[in-house]
């Protein structure tokens, strides 16, 4: 049994302009000790899916329109809020992109870290503070004992992100969802933070969902990748297979459009056009207006996730051609 299994999840937002279908039938699984990267551009529904799993979606305007989220054998969507609250923090935790706005600026980091233990485990302030120092040491913050009373603005961006990681780890959860954890950081710091996250995951045998738009970041940390476009998963595959032979034109377009450090050219093959509005997703395959391989069937029939191999799938009617063309 998987640690987490999302089945056919649908999430919509009711806005002034109509219903925005942010997630349209997403399914994925994560095992203990496994890293799943969810890749997509802004508006692809990658973060909304994660928020639904965590149970931190804004409802309303959001609404879960269907599907199941099975975590350790329980369907989270059927649990009352009180029960879900116990799971949040204790069994699953989340790391956000922007550490500065996720931390409370008027409380010391020690207080905020200790809060996890006071609220969930009823520890005294003194015990909680000692635990906070321990956590800060674990995420390799130098001089943790002296810095425990400092406020968030006194830390650098990389250190703040470490504090966010420490907070997520505090109660040793089974699943961590990291939403763009390194996007706001400089490359050298990004490398430090990714390394830390990977080490800690191994140490605690946690499941990790890594949400990102950066194909480079996930290349060497993820086990498998799910690529999202317009609220749907268009391709899932083990990391190496996906980079070697993408089975969906969107994935290939993404790979071709990033400039690479080790390649110098003058023309990037950009994907034409832009992602669709979630208020009016094109009929058939959502990618068809931008797809170089589109045919009439793509405009009428929505492709299911075809099984390409035991462990990979593609939502393209013509995935076989993509393989043959290579």
């Amino acid at each position: 049994m998987s640690l987490l299994e999302v089945r056919d999840l649908h999430v919509e937002f009711h806005t002034r302009d109509g219903v925005a279908k942010a997630v349209n039938g997403v399914s994925y699984e994560v095992d203990a000790g496994e890293t799943l990267a969810v890749l997509g551009e802004s508006g692809s529904g990658k973060s909304v899916t994660a928020q639904a799993v965590m149970g931190i979606l804004d409802i309303p305007p959001g609404r879960i329109a269907g599907g199941e989220i099975i975590f350790q054998g329980q369907d989270l969507l059927k649990l009352p809020e009180e029960e879900r609250r116990k799971i949040r923090g204790r069994k699953m935790a989340m790391i956000f992109q922007d550490a500065l706005s996720s931390l409370n600026p008027v409380l010391s980091v020690g207080y905020q870290l200790g809060e996890m233990f006071r609220v969930h485990q009823g520890m005294s302030r003194k015990e909680a503070r000692a635990k906070a120092v321990e956590l800060m040491e674990r995420v390799r913050i130098p001089a943790a004992r002296e810095r425990v009373n400092d406020y968030p603005h006194q830390f650098s961006g990389g250190m703040r992100q470490r504090i966010m990681i420490a907070m997520a780890l505090a109660l040793e959860p089974d699943l961590i969802i990291a939403d763009e954890p390194t996007t706001a950081l400089d490359v050298t710091v990004q490398a430090q933070v990714m390394e830390l996250l990977a080490d800690l995951q191994r140490e605690f045998n946690m499941g990790l969902i890594l949400i990102t738009h950066d194909l480079g970041v996930v290349a060497d940390v993820a086990d498998k990748i799910a690529v999202m476009y317009a609220g749907r998963i268009v391709e899932t595959a083990p990391v190496k297979d996906l980079y070697r032979a993408p089975a969906h034109p969107y994935t290939r377009g993404l790979l071709d459009s990033i400039p690479r450090l080790d390649q110098k050219g003058h023309q990037l093959s950009a994907i034409k056009g832009m992602p669709p509005s979630l208020l009016e997703i094109p009929p058939g395959c959502a990618f068809n207006p931008r797809c170089p391989m589109a045919r009439p069937v793509c405009r009428t029939d929505e492709p299911p996730l075809y099984e390409v191999d035991d462990d990979r799938a593609s939502a393209c009617h013509f995935w076989k051609e993509m393989f043959d063309a290579r």
């Binding site: 050298t188 490398a191 290349a219 060497d220 190496k240 070697r244 690479r260 450090l261």
Partner: peptide
């Protein structure tokens, strides 16, 4: 150090 830290989208 900067160069070595840049991830490349190719696990191999």
């Amino acid at each position: 150090a900067l160069l070595s830290a840049v991830p490349v989208p190719d696990p191999e």
